[in-house]
Structure formats: structure tokens, C-alpha cells
């Protein structure tokens, strides 16, 4: 267990930096986690983050990278539904990094 401090408030995370309580998430927390991952959030990043949050809202799981890639392609276009694009935004993995920033648990099967 660990904590992050954002805007004078403390949020609990696990040892890898994922939020423990998913309802703690807000955009300030997302920006903070992105900074710790050395990611400068752009509109393109937010597009993926928002997609992940909608996906989780609907299915209650974080999608595997392959599933995310395919689903993004369907929703946002083939130019974005590929790993080059997604790894370009999240170099350490769209599953790991984007889920962390989106306040979701680590995807099942992601080690």
C-alpha cells in the first residue's frame, strides 16, 4: 500500500501505483499519475483514457491490450486502433499505463 497526494488530498494506491478505490478517480488524480509515468497528457491520451473508463463502466473489467486495440479501432478509427499508435501514447503499455491513469485495476492476464 502507498499513498499519493493530489491537491492536498491523499489517495490510496497499491504498490504498483494503481488506485485502490476506483471511485477516488478524477482528472487531477489522472494528471498526477500520468506525471509519475512521465506522460504528458494530450487530447489523444484523454480519448483513450475516457474510452477505458467507459469500457470499465459497462463490463466491470479492464480490457486486455488486444481487445482494447480492436475496440478503439472500431470506435475511433483504424488509424488509432493499432499498437503503434497506442504504444506511442503509452510507451510502457496501453494496458498497464493507461489503466493506471484511468483509475482502473490492472487488466486481467497482464503481468
Amino acid at each position: 500500500m502507498a499513498n499519493i497526494e493530489v491537491g492536498g488530498k491523499s489517495y490510496e494506491t497499491d504498490e504498483e501505483g494503481y488506485l485502490v478505490d476506483l471511485s477516488d478517480w478524477n482528472t487531477d488524480v489522472a494528471n498526477f499519475i500520468a506525471q509519475t509515468e512521465s506522460i504528458n497528457m494530450t487530447e489523444q491520451h484523454w480519448e483513450v483514457i475516457n474510452f477505458l473508463r467507459e469500457y470499465f463502466e459497462e463490463y466491470q473489467i479492464a480490457p486486455a491490450v488486444r481487445v482494447l486495440t480492436k475496440a478503439i479501432g472500431k470506435k475511433l478509427g483504424a488509424d488509432k486502433g493499432n499498437s503503434e499508435y497506442l504504444y506511442g501514447l503509452f510507451p510502457y503499455g496501453p494496458g498497464k499505463q493507461a489503466c493506471k491513469i484511468a483509475g482502473l485495476p490492472k487488466p486481467t492476464g497482464c503481468v
Binding site: 459497462e58 463490463y59 466491470q60 473489467i61 480490457p63 486486455a64 481487445v67 480492436k70 475496440a71
Partner: peptide, 14 residues
Amino acid sequence: TKNFSPAYRALEGY
């Protein structure tokens, strides 16, 4: 307890 039933609807995407 976590309601995991929505995940069955995600299987198609997998």
C-alpha cells in the same frame, strides 16, 4: 461483492 456478471457480455470482444 463485485458484480462480475457484466464481464460475460465482454467475452464477444475477446
